[in-house]
């Protein structure tokens, strides 16, 4: 029997993580509820004026998405660290950075993609136009993978720490700023009927950059945290 090729190992790891998520699916719903709940708090805290909500809506939805992504971030490596599977991944003969892409992809499919599905509902709550809703989905599709990729570095650095969770937000949130700015202003622009192609290209550029740099940084961080 031959050793698994890299694409095989990649898909086996991806499928394993998806299977695990399916078997603990009750946990998946929490960040999603959080996303909806945080968004619903803003009208209560500020005002229910439809014009105002429409103006601040894109920012609110994106801030909520940022926080929801942060909340679910720890699960990328937490259980693998706790039960020792992470050591086994580290010692596999496959390049760790490629395995990291599989881990982050699985994590995005489990936690990022559901945000896209719920987002239109939030758009309705905050009175967004149809055009803005489309842009919102596009920005979430381009932006949330960047959040997962950047976040994975932060989790890799803090996975061995007892108080990792509180530090994680300090490490990761400042790095989320560009995504927030480009994405939220894209949605606001399209609500005002302005072009958004520049924003979307910038988000796509961020995604390309994150895909090319983050896996190696995550792998290096894990090696340091585990030592």
């Amino acid at each position: 029997m031959k050793p698994a090729t890299l694409p095989q190992a990649f898909s086996i790891l991806l499928r394993r993580d998806l299977t695990l998520a399916y078997r603990r699916r009750s946990e998946m719903i929490n960040p999603l509820l959080f996303f909806v709940l945080v968004t619903a708090l803003f009208p209560l805290g500020i005002s229910a004026d439809p014009a105002l909500l429409r103006e601040i809506g894109p920012g609110i939805i994106w801030v909520a998405a940022l926080l929801a992504s942060l909340l679910s971030l720890e699960t990328v490596f937490r259980s693998d660290f706790d039960d020792g599977s992470l050591e086994q991944l580290l010692l596999s003969p496959h390049p760790l950075s490629v395995l990291m892409i599989a881990k982050v992809l699985a994590h995005w499919l489990i936690t990022g993609l559901p945000l896209l599905i719920v987002a239109p509902l939030l758009g309705v709550l905050l009175n967004l136009s149809t055009a803005a809703m489309k842009t919102l989905l596009l920005t979430l599709a381009l932006g949330t993978p960047v959040l997962s990729l950047i976040g994975a570095i932060g989790v890799a650095l803090t996975v061995g720490l007892r108080k990792g969770g509180t530090i994680l937000s300090l490490l990761v949130l400042p790095l989320y700023v560009p995504v927030l700015i480009f994405a939220a202003s894209a949605v606001a622009n399209s609500d005002a009927g302005l072009p958004v192609s520049a924003h979307l290209s910038l988000l796509a550029a961020l995604l390309v950059l994150a895909i090319s740099l983050s896996p190696a940084a995550t792998a290096a961080s894990l090696r340091i945290s585990m030592s």
Partner: peptide, 17 residues
């Protein structure tokens, strides 16, 4: 590592702001 990640991000953050 964190400082290196930050240094890649600083120009992006600066530009986006």
């Amino acid at each position: 590592i964190l400082a290196l990640v930050g240094v890649v991000n600083i120009p992006i953050i600066h530009y986006s702001v």
